[in-house]
Design a protein around this nucleic acid. Structure first.
Lengths: 265, 265
DNA sequence: CGAGACTTTGACCGTAGTCAATTTATGTGG
DNA sequence: CCACATAAATTGACTACGGTCAAAGTCTCG
């Protein structure tokens, strides 16, 4: 009952803009032909991807948001990252050593990422490459998240995360002007950023008063993204491997012996 | 000048126990035959792996420790993880988008992870599989690290990290009794765990006084690892994919609507 | 309209950060 | 083998960011 035919219930929004397929416009129609089944999950449900076959199954989110998380026995929770439309969910994330899981944050629709043997080679190839890039970018985001939690203040963390989400939302065409819908409760923010709900609330209040960030009814508006990026040390998710971006901009700090060299953020 | 022949300068310790090759004892001798070159880096040097060919090059650490890190313009540093003997260093980590880098924490010796076409198929196959598992485990460690930084207290973080390192050291046969050499300054701990040096110092002092952890001259001794694991929520790095460890032990918390299900740590 | 989830606020606490000075290694050249 | 220079570890005093507890206030939706 979780699985329905597209015929009976077509994906709730056009799936033309999937980040894994960004820049391959012309192939999408061919790909779409193979997405006959949409799997749905309700908000709060655990996303289990029991690939019948042994190999690791992957799906693409068509609509809705999900997150990857872990819970400690005493109730402390940590959210590792979010999956939004256009992102890939890997079966491995779904039950890896029983230590992590994926949870739907809203109603969620996903389609199989494997075009199947039926499609022609070029399609399969493009998809494979897209999936690979998506995996790389996902890992890149893990590092960003680590930096956030380890070295940024509460304000910076919130802004940094919002900028990341905004950019990802924009990439799949869901950003309207400088506003986007964001289905995250403050509790979710807290669990993602390693802060308490109360402190998230106060931080957001402060940002709101400064006018740089506006929260209203499940939507966020980011004015002056440039300024926000600067104050939170945000660096756009490069088009992966965007080449050796000025790798020379290494302002050497005489600081601790450890790093005579420097890697900028 | 960074590259020398093994003949002229053999690896400083037997490379029989490499975590990437754990459990493949019999093949190691054959593999070793292809490691003719050892690359060396001095403590504090950035590890650059400029693979001549386009593909991403990978090397295995034979001796010494390194870490993967990022630095913000204002000097804040975040260490993402450590590489110790037996671990793989991926070229990608080395200059990815100019945002991360690998730094040697001690004198460091690495050998190429690619057996080359010269070796026979079974060797290449085993190595490929080992590299893949290593990559998976590395990612797993990133999640652990995220959990540490997001939800553990200073005490817990320190203990949790020490347990991870201890386990990894043990796996490659460098644990003597319950003691191992650890070339990390308190500053490095601080940068890895998102704490200040001063607070690391105080936390360690406390642990020392409690007698559960002993620091002395570049070595650490962990008594009662079981107890330490419990107090820091440490869960051993499973033999990856160790199967669906009691996946049923999901003590449901009635807590926030988000997670009616639970993933233990 | 009522129940439950989510947000907001106040009062107060405590973990961890900052600054600065001192002590203890670790080396290195003489 | 000693003296000096430097990196690393410690410690004290004080601050502040962020956590906890508890009580309202708001929204949503059946």
């Amino acid at each position: 009952m979780r699985i329905e035919d597209v015929a009976a219930a077509p994906p709730s929004r056009p799936i033309a803009a999937l980040s894994v397929l960004a820049g391959q416009g012309s192939d999408i129609d061919r790909l779409r032909a193979f997405w006959r089944r949409v799997e749905r999950f309700t908000a709060g449900a655990q996303v289990r991807l029991d690939g019948p076959r042994g190999g690791r199954r992957r799906v693409i989110v068509v609509s809705g948001w999900a997150c990857e998380m872990r819970i400690l026995q005493d109730g402390r929770r940590q959210i590792f990252g979010f999956m939004l439309p256009g992102d890939v969910i890997d079966e491995r994330s779904t039950w890896s050593i029983g230590s992590r899981g994926v949870v739907a944050l809203t109603r969620l629709e996903v389609v199989d990422a494997d075009p199947g043997a039926s499609s022609d080679a070029s399609v399969r190839e493009n998809m494979a490459e897209a999936l690979c890039e998506a995996a790389i970018e996902r890992e890149e985001r893990l590092y960003d998240h680590l930096m956030r939690m380890g070295r940024l203040s509460a304000r910076e963390r919130v802004v940094h995360l919002l900028l990341e989400l905004c950019e990802r939302v924009e990439r799949v065409g869901l950003l309207k002007g400088d506003t986007f819908r964001i289905p995250l409760t403050q509790e979710v923010f807290a669990d993602a950023l390693g802060l308490s709900v109360v402190h998230i609330n106060r931080t957001m209040k402060q940002l709101r008063q400064e006018g740089s960030v506006v929260f209203k009814a499940g939507s966020v508006t980011l004015r002056e993204r440039q300024k926000l990026a600067a104050m939170s040390h945000y660096r756009p998710l490069g088009p992966e491997l965007a080449g050796a971006r000025d790798r020379s901009a290494t302002e050497r700090r005489s600081n601790g012996g450890l790093a005579d060299w420097a890697v900028l953020a």
